[in-house]
Amino acid sequence: MTVSGADATTVGVLALQGAFSEHIQLLRLAAESLKTRNAHGSKWSFIEVRTPAELGRCDALILPGGESTAISLVAARSGLLEPLRDFVKVLRKPTWGTCAGLILLAEAANRTKKGGQDLIGGLDVRVNRNHFGRQTESFQANLALPFLGEPGGEQPFRCVFIRAPVVEKILPHQAGIQAEEASSDDTVVAPSKTPFDELAKEELNADVEVMAKISTRSPALRDNEDHDHPGTEDIIAVRQGNVFGTSFHPELTEDPRIHVWWLEEVVKAVLRRQQFELADRSI
């Protein structure tokens, strides 16, 4: 189990709906693995988040797979939507979204339900929902994920795609909302928020990095008739500063490597925050 205390880093998993238990289990595995790897080891506390008070305790957050429309409606009715936007875009704390979570973190999304859906935002990308088609087109593919280590030097990761979205376009960072995206009828955008200090602004304005792609010629996609578009690759993982999104479900494997990598990123982000605040005070 996790150790909680004053010096523990608290990582929340949004538990309104979906595969939140799976993320917590993999976070525990990842923390074990980190403990055996480095002697100092951070102390971690992993909690389920259903209320603004629980969110307030978190240093970092995961938005799990689930149904993004349901999660966003329940979040709004549970008084969590604005606190989530503040968490990701004002306080700019480390956040990771998988599948539905990636959709919620996108600044713009396509193919949403009639009347659109509320987004949290935080990643300057446009996602295309259910990109590969319906459940019968769901699949898994063993992919090399460059951010986990030297290309080819690491074992491929079993990526599970379930009615998955992809990042269709990387958008230029805007001072306000993604106005050009908003002008398209089929696209919804997230509201704009102002980061509360210089560091938050830096993390929010960082460039979007493409972390992983899948080739449209991948054997996993060869027989999919619904999946037809120009280009030879789909973007399936991105990062912008301390916010990360994957269109697949690392929480549906027994492989904690991505969770380990992400917790290490969280440690770095928390450290950046501490150093910034220290420097800030000394001025």
Partner: peptide, 23 residues
């Protein structure tokens, strides 16, 4: 965990049900 690339396996089928949990 025994899947080959592209296979729509039991893990993928049971995976959608997991996405519906709590709903």
């Amino acid at each position: 965990t025994s899947a080959q690339d592209g296979e729509n396996t039991f893990a993928v089928k049971a995976g959608l049900a997991r996405m519906l949990k709590g709903g």
